[in-house]
């Protein structure tokens, strides 16, 4: 890790304008975030805190209402820069394409020649453990496998910044841990910078070099923790004491924020769990 800044958000806010009688929604910020080249950064926060908005801004999918966003020194203004890949929480595999064609999708759009496509797709499918399913359709695969297809589809484009928006949110806890291991392997192998958005404290604590804990909406960083993990790590960190300290600290930061997101006053008695409107 060189410590060089790879991407940053400076004083970024995102406000959704008023729609038909509903007041404008201040979803995010102002926040500052500096991603170092090659690091694994996780953002945790309560539901609806603007984590995903933060990622959309960084990916160029949504322009910031205020503030500056840049990737590799170039400003991002609501259009997707080259070298950025994203995987989303929803299953975004295409059911009408085989696993192989799903993985090749982006390369074909870029007009990469067939031999190169074959080389990169074979590699990505092998890396994600999908080689035996190359001719299967997503409907024949489990949720975890489908998410691997989406990761492979991003991987073939050789992104230098990989954005992951709760990619394992819909998977069961054990599968999530195993997918976490694969993510670490992928991160080490590609040398890419990874930004992981998650609501799972253990996932954030286990996978990342740094964790940013985000407040309830409008999301801001409460604190950024350095985990101090070695680069060569996996889910066996869960057994150690440090893991408990990190998750403990994260929960300390987020407990009252999560209550706020559920409609509670901090430290109020347990009651109804009315969702925040909007």
């Amino acid at each position: 890790m060189t410590g060089e800044i790879h991407a940053h958000l400076t004083r970024v806010t995102r406000v959704y304008p008023a729609v038909a009688g509903n007041p404008p929604v201040h979803a995010l910020g102002p926040i500052d975030l500096e991603l170092r080249r090659g690091e694994f950064f996780a953002i945790v926060g309560p539901s609806g805190c603007g984590k995903s908005t933060c990622m959309d801004v960084l990916a160029g999918l949504a322009p910031p209402s205020e503030g500056e966003v840049s990737f590799e020194g170039n400003p991002i203004r609501g259009s997707v820069p080259d070298g950025v890949g994203a995987v989303f929480q929803e299953d975004a595999s295409f059911p009408w394409l085989t696993v192989w064609d799903n993985a090749a999708f982006g390369l074909r759009r870029q007009g990469v020649d067939a031999a190169e496509i074959r080389r990169r797709v074979e590699y990505a499918l092998g890396f994600m453990g999908l080689r035996d399913f190359a001719q299967a359709y997503p409907a024949q695969l489990s949720g975890g496998m489908r998410q691997r297809v989406c990761i492979a589809r991003t991987l073939v484009l050789q992104p230098r910044l990989i954005l992951l928006d709760e990619p394992f949110g819909a998977l069961d806890a054990q599968t999530r841990l195993l997918m976490g291991d694969e993510l670490l392997r992928l991160w080490r192998e590609t040398g890419a910078t990874v930004l992981l958005i998650t609501h799972a404290l253990d996932e954030a604590a286990m996978l990342s070099d740094r964790v940013g804990a985000m407040s309830a909406r409008p999301g801001r960083f409460l604190e950024t923790l350095e985990t101090g993990w070695p680069r060569d790590r996996d889910s066996s960190m869960l057994e150690g004491e440090t893991f408990g300290h990190i998750t403990g600290r994260l929960w300390q930061l987020l407990r009252s924020e999560s209550q706020a997101a559920m409609g509670h006053h901090p430290d109020a008695a347990q009651g109804g769990t009315r969702r925040e409107a909007g």
Binding site: A59, G85, F88
Partner: peptide, 8 residues
């Protein structure tokens, strides 16, 4: 989400 994928 396909909309986001297309833009990516």
């Amino acid at each position: 989400v396909y909309d986001k994928v297309a833009r990516m």
